[in-house]
Computed example of a mutant assay.
Amino acid sequence: MPFTTTVITGATSGIGKETAMALAKKGHAVYLLVRYTERGERLKQEIITATKNKNIYVMHCDLADMESVRNAADILKGGLLAVNVLINNAGGIFAERRESKDGFEMTFAVNHLGHFLLVESLLPLLEKGQARIINVSSEAHRMAKPNFNDLQWAKRPYSAWKAYGTAKLFNIYFTRSLALKYGPKGISAFALHPGVVNTGFAAGLTGFNKILMQLAKPFMISAERGAQTSIYLASAARVDAKSGRYFKKQKPVKPSAIAANEEGRNRLWELSMELVAPFLH
């Protein structure tokens, strides 16, 4: 693959870190979009030491803060000619309902809306780079029952896992919409399940949810193994024909029946566009 410019969110730990390290070894110029720049700088030095690749860059980007997302995109647009790979890796699950500074429910903001705004803001660079957009979803999408009249979980009892599963379903909807809308412009998009990975991802859970995660730990895979499908989609030579698909263990698989719902997919796009409109320019 020729020189590749890759942007990745959530790279300071877990599968994001393993993905960034692996792609740096393959010679990618890697832009680490991170919430905590100190951690990002430490990771940058770790990657440079391990790979001898000096084309590693750190940028602040808090996906729960739409202004931060827009600012990161503006900096990238000011310094790059194109982006070839965008990996929307960051995610989170929250034990209790919380709102972002913009008033969005945090699970929705971090797992979906921040990435939606990032893609829309970077669209000129993604088009020029004939980019692959990779959205890290989850098999948790199979528990989703989306309510488009209450995306923010303000009108019903909040459930950490149901909110998370719904956001992961939205990753699949988003992927399919990107493939259909921007495929004619040379952009491809993929969603993936990384596996049940042993990381600090669900550290904030409490009560029964925390007990469940502790019981599951012996059966979890390593972050290195969990990163393999992201790495594959970012670097394999011939996957673009499978744009719009959901991957597991480096192969396309069938997601839940609701993930194929065209009405829901289109509704999510329309509502997401309305919500990010004040932050686009």
Rank of each mutant, 00 (worst) to 15 (best):
L212F: 14
I87A: 06
G114Y: 11
S13K: 14
I87S: 07
G114P: 09
Q45N: 11
G186S: 04
K155P: 06
S121A: 14
L205E: 02
I75K: 15
N209Y: 13
G92E: 06
C61T: 13
I47D: 03
Q130A: 13
E96S: 06
A29L: 13
V83E: 02
N53L: 05
L43S: 04
F208M: 13
I15A: 03
E105T: 10
E139M: 14
V69E: 11
Y31T: 04
A131T: 01
A95V: 00
L215Y: 09
G16A: 05
R267E: 14
D102R: 03
R225W: 14
A189Y: 08
L280H: 04
V83F: 02
K181M: 14
D62I: 09
D102T: 00
F174M: 04
M21Q: 06
Q214L: 10
R142M: 12
D102W: 02
K168P: 12
G16I: 08
Y31H: 15
K181G: 03
R238K: 13
P146S: 09
N89L: 01
A259S: 13
S68L: 09
A179E: 07
V58L: 05
Y173Q: 02
L81W: 00
T9E: 06
E127G: 01
A241R: 07
G27F: 06
A234W: 01
A95C: 04
A227P: 14
L192P: 08
S256D: 12
T51A: 10
G129A: 01
S272H: 02
E274I: 09
A95R: 02
V85F: 01
A257D: 15
A131R: 05
S243D: 03
N53A: 07
I87V: 15
A163N: 10
V239D: 02
L80N: 05
S243N: 07
T19R: 04
E41M: 08
M59N: 08
G91Y: 01
G78S: 12
F3H: 15
L76A: 09
D240P: 02
M143E: 12
M1W: 00
N198R: 12
P146N: 11
N266G: 04
S100D: 01
A202C: 08
V276A: 04
G40D: 06
D65L: 08
T49P: 00
L280M: 10
G207D: 08
T51L: 07
G92S: 08
I221P: 00
T199M: 07
D65C: 10
L33W: 02
V110I: 08
T19G: 08
I133F: 04
M66K: 02
R267G: 00
G264Q: 11
Q250S: 10
H193M: 05
I8H: 11
A73P: 11
E67A: 15
A20W: 03
P184W: 06
E224D: 12
L43K: 04
R225S: 15
E224Y: 05
G79R: 13
G16L: 06
K101C: 06
A191D: 10
F108R: 05
H115V: 10
K210P: 00
R132F: 04
K101S: 12
L180P: 00
I133Y: 06
G91C: 02
T175E: 03
L151G: 09
R42P: 00
P124M: 12
I93K: 01
H193N: 14
F279S: 07
